[in-house]
Design a binder for these strands. Sequence first.
RNA 1: GCACCCGUAGCUCAGUUGGAUAGAGCGUCUGACUACGAAUCAGAAGGUCAUAGGUUCGAAUCCUGUCGGGUGCACCA
Length: 670
Amino acid sequence: MFHPLRESVRAAIQAAVERQFGIVLADVAVEFPPNVALGDLATPAAFEIAKRLKAATGEKRSPRDIALALAEALRAELRDFDRIEVAGAGYVNLFLRRPETLLRALDAPAAALAPRFGGKVIVEHTSVNPNKSAHIGHLRNAALGDALVRILRAAGETVEVHNYIDDTGAQVADVVVGFVYIEGKSLADVEAMTGKFDDACWDLYARVGAWYAEDESRLRLRAETLHAIERREGELAALAEHIAERIARCHLATMQRLGIQYDALPCESAILQLNFWADAFERLKAAGAIVYETEGRRAGCWVMRADPEAAATADDEHDADKILVRSNGTVNYTGKDIAYHLWKLGLLDRDFHYRAFYRYPDGHIAWMGGATASEADSPRAQFGHGAAYLNVIDAGQSYAQAFVKRGALAVAPPSAQDSIAASAHIAYEKVALTPASCLELGFTLSEEDRRRPFVSMSGRKGLGVKADDLLDRLEGKALAHVEASQSALPEVERRDIARKVAVAAIRYFLLKFARTTLIAFDFADALAEQGETGVYLLYSLVRMASIRRKLRAAGLDFPAPAAALRDHLAQLEAWLRDDGQSANEFWALAALALRYDAALAEARETLEPSVVAKYAFQLAQAFSAFYNRHNIRHESDNVRRAFLITLASLVESRLRAALNVLGIDAPERM
RNA sequence: GCACCCGUAGCUCAGUUGGAUAGAGCGUCUGACUACGAAUCAGAAGGUCAUAGGUUCGAAUCCUGUCGGGUGCACCA
């Protein structure tokens, strides 16, 4: 509710300022005061106006004087407010009509935002190399990406979710090498393997790393395997395909445990076979985005020029320009990535062939984008052609991602420039391990590593926290709680509750940090059930559910019918009024709940899910305090009880909406 | 060499486009359960916002320098 309100206040201020002072304020700060006793919205615009007036006309007018005039103008303009006051040196504070606002909000949706992107947004996330188990770092990527998808959808956007499968890379080749040259297995042997395949590959991949280190000439086998995979020849290629598909399925299953689904799984092998690059190459050349080097050490290469500023910083060691086509005529990774992104935006004439790869319990299908048409299973699958893309990729790829965007902008027609400009690399820092976590995992650390604040995970060393293992531990912990507190429930239900608690715990843990904050993973923190955790959030909703059950058992309504309150406006007014000393706790709670849409809007604007995570925790905290101070069930005054129920159900609806956007689902009990 | 990210309470982190008294969680200390479930709540102690300048009516936030930590700048993927 506060989002549109804020926008209308912003517009009113701009209009009033232009009319009264002849100043056009492009950005007007309309903020939430520190507490509701200072108003529901406030603007420090008078300070800015004073500065601009002085600069333009030399007229010196005090901010407070300007604020008084502005407040007067706003009073005539804005009708939702009870009063508009000037405070301090020049703040204009706006106070809502509390009873009316509360009653009106009961019928309103949690959020109603206008789409920001001009069409379908393609969000790519997860994109784990399909050669071993997913670990906690991959989980951060997926949790961020999925939350972003949910935020965008809640904000009215159309979203398509992609998970890129790099099925032809060195990492898959390494596992092939391990199976064939270390374990002496054939394709049939590998196909016959039972047990958790991704974990077997996890261990094998670490062994391959050590095996190469023993004798570096063995790296030749990787190169040979990579070539075989690229040519799609022989058993090595078939084995690679088997591994990649099987591990991709493992990853989808892991993510499914968290409730994360995908629409399309474009494969790198298809991009190569269908020769997306050929189209992209022509377009980039035609657009003048790349040039052919005829001299110097990069003679024979096609490169994308760095912008002039960056070019000036080039030295002997580092060129600023980016090579896309090597002197032997082959395209490199960045070039392929540009081609892939031109496809995402519908700027290539080629397309994948789709087959149903993974069916979710709810019937949703993840379509694999491959090179060959198969059966008739994909006639309606239509992917790509996005108006914009958002890539959830770790911050280490910022440099390459910048070139991808430049390539897309260079090729896109004028009509698509704006939406592509809105496309972005959603960069995030990785998850590292605290030295204590490494020791807990059974790894021995060097003296140097032991002293570091954190240690990077390494698939090659087998050092990392596997996603499924962590989820298992979380579920086990939650189950122990549930068995103690809900012993009457059947086991199926207890397990379902434990699963929901585990998902809430891990998702909140990964989303409460801002994207650019490096997470030093610590088992104690991740497994915590107290304090700022997903478990705490669930507990708030479980308490509401409990209240609802008790009230209904007593024949009372939850939520209370709004009609029960409409006839008692004076009473409501009294309950919601500040006491003169401090802000009113009821109104503070209601106003916080009504800021849900503002939090959602900010998260969408900044593409930062932690905004919603922090908001949800704050709201849950405020509700817990309210819960402890006021006993709803034992309230004997019918009207007051209806009032308390109304507040609780308002908080419940916004808290549930916030958790939904974070991918957290609350059980009825826990 | 250049670019990007980070430095805020003992620890882990938030901090609304520059605004009102810098906030949470954990940990420490003091209290509150025969319960609308204590996986909770109330309270206390704890900060020179790395550092030195600058801009501004106003700076944790913007600019510059310095220090410390991380990452990137391959004819690798």
